[in-house]
Amino acid sequence: MIDIKNLLLEVPSLTINRITLHLHDHEYFVLLGPTGSGKSLLLDIIAGAYSPESGEIMLNGRDITHERPECREIGYVPQDYALFDNMKVIDNLTFGLRVHGVSHHDAYQQLKRLIKTLELKDLLQKRPEVLSGGEKRKVALARALATSPKLLLLDEPFSGLDQNLKDRFIYELKRIHDEYGIPTIHVTHNRIEAIELGDRVGILQHGTLEQVGKFDDLINAPKNEFIAKFLGIENVVNCRELNRYLNLPEDTTVAFTPEDVILLIDKGNGVDGIPVEIQQVIKLEKSLMITGLLFENLIKIKSNAKFSINGDNIKIKIKKYRRIL
């Protein structure tokens, strides 16, 4: 169990702004945020690279806020893997146990199960420099798990992998998390990873943890426009005329995806819908992506490709929308 309270650290370009976060046992927590939002810096603080100016980090009831990294019992897989190039894969894997005084032979015996689980046997005698990106990632993950940490930190573990490899890795990571049950903080800018892996998700922006919850809860009730857009809800509109159509209070901001919009077919007698002025239509494989002006707000609409567009104006209905809190 990890408890982070009011964590504050100012570095020249960024402030980790009083972050409070509680992780349950076995929880897989995904921290989502754009580049430069402070995700990696937060992991660095938790791992022990920096001492925060204020706040505390408790791991299983122990205050580790100002402990040295080697005393924290945290496994860390950075984005660039940080494999030790001067050692073979096997020496990378056994490193954590050897520095604790375990002999190389005993360390290898202890890690046999992990090596089997992650299918690393064929890589053991290789140097990190000859491994592929996926293999490096597996070695870095195994190395972090080797010392049985109380918390696992994963920094963008899938960046740079192609989709096939990413899918396989997500599956493997799920399996390993189920097997070892180590609470994990996984930082990424990719919401698909959050959907696939996260028991809960946190959104970080400019060093501030904006919202925490289950992914479905966040997407149904995003706290602000940034979160809505970051979670893939492309249309965020604050417009009096639209709110009148939707019977909402005047200053309400609503968010909806391009798929949430239905195009209404005008069969000549006029339809009662929300007018949109078309700006651009792009033909996709099975659909149309329409960019249009909804009372001077640019929105995107995804529609069935069979639908033919006549003229510059269409009428729409928004079948599902979220009110931004």
């Binding site: 690279a49 080697e70 860390y76």
Partner: peptide, 22 residues
């Protein structure tokens, strides 16, 4: 990269061990 040192230390290595072994 300093992060290599950080990772080694999270694995339990002291600063002396990091310098000597990495």
């Amino acid at each position: 990269h300093p992060r290599i040192e950080l990772v080694a230390r999270t694995l339990g290595a002291s600063q002396w061990q990091v310098v000597r072994m990495i």
